[in-house]
Design a protein around this nucleic acid. Sequence first.
DNA 1: GCCAACGTTGGC
DNA 2: GCCAACGTTGGC
Length: 153
Amino acid sequence: MKQDKNYWLLKSEPNCYSIDDLKRDKKSVWSGVRNYQARNFIRDNMKKGDGVLFYHSNSNPSEVVGIAKILTNPFADPTVFEKRNEQYDQKSTIENPIWYAVDVGFVKKFKTPITLQKIKSDNSLKNMTVAQKGSRLSVMPVLQKHFHFFENL
DNA sequence: GCCAACGTTGGC
DNA sequence: GCCAACGTTGGC
């Protein structure tokens, strides 16, 4: 695993879990990811101390609303073991998990969010993965230079 | 292993 | 609500 700090964009639907929820809770378990590509990012590259852009998807408008940070290294997604969860029956164990989660901590909420439209129209931001057509991943890597733009807002 | 059918995501 | 862009499922 690389030593350098990595940066991520995490999507959440605000009516499900918003930046205000994270601000209130201070931290939250980022669980329930059931996409293999997103899983691989979490499992293989995400680690304690990484930076996070918090993004509201399916929103009006969709936008980056704040900064968060990764508080833990990846661990077995606990929602897999909930009996009423449809994932309960699969062969995911603590020793050999299929799905992973991390703890995410609140850092700050922007006074003015950066809309997807703004990202797409900004020459230095428009090549971000989130601005690309058809990108549906809920977890995606972010370049350091892009993270710094948001961090310095 | 191919691929059609179906389900989901998410911008608009 | 529409639909493009995926991902998943299952018959063959």
